[in-house]
Every structure is written in C-alpha cells, then in structure tokens.
Amino acid sequence: MTMKKAQKLEIKDLSVTFESEIIKNISLKVEDREIISIIGPSGCGKSTLFNVVSGIIKQNKGLIKINGLEEKKRQGKFGYMFQEPLLFPWLKVLENVMLGFEIKGIEKKQAKIEAVYLLKKFDLFEYANLYPNSLSGGMKQKAALLRTIAFNSDILLLDEPFGLLDAITRSNLHLYLLDIWKKLGLTIIFTTHDIREAIFLSDRVYVLSKKPATVIDCIKINLSRPRKISDQTSKKFVELEKKIISLL
C-alpha cells in the first residue's frame, strides 16, 4: 500500500469578506516543487488571497494546510515577495539578503556566510556591497528574490513579482527564477495578469474570475522543461494562450 504524499499547500473553500465579498470558495492544491500561477483580472483579489494565505489577514471561512497539516498561524511559513522589491535602502545588498536569514533567527555570522553563498551561486555577488538604490529595477528584484529565499526556501508566494519590469528584463528574470527553482527545489505560487508569463513559468495555471474571485478553471501546462524563450512561439504555447484568453 502506498501512502499518498501530502500536498505542499492546500486551500479549501476559502472565503474572504470585508465590506463586500472578495474571495468566494476558492480551493486549490499545490504539489511539492510545482510552479503554480494564479491569473485573473486586475483587482480581482489575488493579493488578498496571498495576504490571507501568508497570515497577514484572516479568512472568514475555509482552511489552509501546509505539508498536510492545518495551520492557523501562518506568519513565517512562506517566502513572500511583492511587486516592489522593498529592499531596505539603508542596507547594502548583502545585508538585505542577510536580513532574510536573521529574521528567521539565524545569528549574524552564519547569516553572512549563507548570504554570501546565495549571492555567489546566483550571480549577484559583485553587487554585494552596493546600496539598492544604485541597482537597476531588474537587479533589485533579483536581490529581493534572494532575500525572500533566504527567509524561506520552502514555499514562495510571489505577488506579481515582475509586474513593474520592462519586457526584456522580465524575460531575463523568468530564466533567473527558473534556474533558482531548479537548483533549490522550490515550490512557487505566483500571481500575474500576464498570460504568457503564466504559461511560460508554470506547471498549472489557475484562472480566477472577477470579484468576488472564484476559480474558473485550472489549466495544466504540458510543455517540457527546461523551457526556453523560443518556446513562447510554439504552436502548443499559442493554443494554451488562446484557451486562457477565452476563459477570462
């Protein structure tokens, strides 16, 4: 008899209401080392979903399981990243990444060793001693990604992580993220309103409706990995794109 392996993250019948209903009965499952994207119209409640999952705000209904266990207190269980890099301008890149380790409770000396290792492994070491404000938008977001991973490399919640970047920088960061994902074995959930980005990165795409957000469909992306930029012009890719457009 084989034991069914627990999902990395499971959301069941989640509803959130403030003045109006924002999220209505959302259920989704994320397997270990999967990349899942959540796509939906702007303002549909994607960020609220992440705020609830990460424990910043409380749900009205539903439960959230991490590694098969229901978790009520979820602060610190995810690496959460926003559209803006939110690096601390008074800390150098290295110190910003160290901060991820330090908040987790790792002492400074060890945090420095691990931060240096991360920066070297993912090509940012030459910027270690610069202040964030001297970096380009793409570089800042790369550094922010490493800080997020320093804090938690189990499950990442990325809220429109590439939303503020230009197209070229964005596809550069797509490859950067995929490289990190592969080397560290991460589980990633991210929101976007860019359909091509969702298809290019994900194993599955959840399509959400307008407010109140519900899951319209979950599309499996059966493109082989590792993926290349040129995949985005393949027939399969374009068909998936058409399918998602028709749902939105």
Binding site: S54, G55, I56, L86
Partner: peptide, 11 residues
C-alpha cells in the same frame, strides 16, 4: 508594504 512584508515574516 514593508510593514506587510515583515508581518508576513512573523516579525
């Protein structure tokens, strides 16, 4: 947003 980020980290 920075405050939100740190809250999510459990600070």
């Amino acid at each position: 947003s920075i405050l939100r980020l740190l809250t999510s980290m459990g600070a």
